[in-house]
Amino acid sequence: MNGTNRVGVVGCGLMGSGIAEICARKGLDVVVAVSSARSEERGRRRVDRSLERAVSKGGITPAERDEALGRISYTTDLGGLSGGQFVIEAITEDESAKLDLFSRLDKAVENPDAVFTTNTSSLPVMKLARVMSRPEQVVGTHFFSPVPAMPLVEVTRSLLTSAESAERVETFLTTTLGKDVVRSPDRAGFVVNALLVPYLLSAMRMAESGFASPEDIDRGMTQGCAHPVGPLRLSDLIGLDTLEAVAGGLYAEFKEPLFAAPPLLSRMVEGGLLGKKSGRGFYRYD
């Protein structure tokens, strides 16, 4: 994997597959590192389905779909990412897993100029940077789901991030990928989740207490406040396990009660009711 037009992505879940797709659609060669053959199969299906939807909506042509698919390759060896200019981490929102991954990436990616980015939505970038021998080359890049449709990326510099690394990442996001960027200080939750998560947790507490049904809560916000989707359906789309992890990160940093996950959220996650991706959350999905 060599050249400035090549990117590595670690993880091929909802976020990783979306990031790989938009990079490929912009003409970049993408190597996706996955944990297993099963992860690769599921990731391929996600990318295939997303590109098929883009074709059906007229966003791209069948030829462009095939070209994008041809630019994405998969590997279970982190060494396959070596040589790329950017390595984008997009694995599960789990601190220990991310720390372990960044420690291994430091050894596996030999290119001394590579910039490493993390798609964390709640963890301080500094924590991840500190396990590497080149913390100045670690930048936070929080994409939003679905990645091909959502224009925003939050960019976060730790106290150790170099200005050059941050500038390279912002140029890549805006010029190459066509994304909009907002800058955030290196605080848990950054800008968007620090505002969004308390709102979603408040809606869960309202449903948990019996104050209102999930349907009425969502209808109130969509029809009364012109939100495109209600808070509980949005929570299902994000993934309740992801929200619990983000809330935990916010609470650990700020110790504010509004960031604490309500018992209902914890019980739903324990029961595997994770939202749309599991078929059931606050709503049922076919």
Rank of each mutant, 00 (worst) to 15 (best):
R42C: 14
K127N: 14
T176C: 06
L177Q: 01
M132D: 01
S96T: 11
V7C: 02
A188M: 12
G83K: 12
I60T: 05
G210S: 07
S122Q: 03
A188Y: 08
A54W: 06
L105D: 10
R219C: 02
V197C: 12
I238H: 10
D241L: 05
G210L: 11
S96N: 11
L152G: 13
V138P: 02
L232Y: 04
P228E: 03
A108V: 12
S121M: 03
R46C: 04
D218E: 00
E253I: 05
I238K: 05
G79Q: 13
S121T: 10
T222I: 00
A108D: 14
T61M: 07
T141R: 07
E21C: 03
F86A: 05
R49N: 09
R233I: 04
N119H: 07
F86C: 07
D241C: 06
D100H: 05
L201M: 04
A54V: 03
L232T: 00
V246E: 05
G8T: 06
T176N: 02
R157M: 12
L240S: 04
E64Y: 07
S103Y: 06
E67C: 01
V9C: 03
S184L: 06
A149L: 15
L101T: 11
A188C: 08
D180E: 08
Y283P: 00
Q85K: 14
E21V: 10
G79P: 13
L196F: 02
A245I: 01
G59Q: 12
L152W: 03
M15G: 10
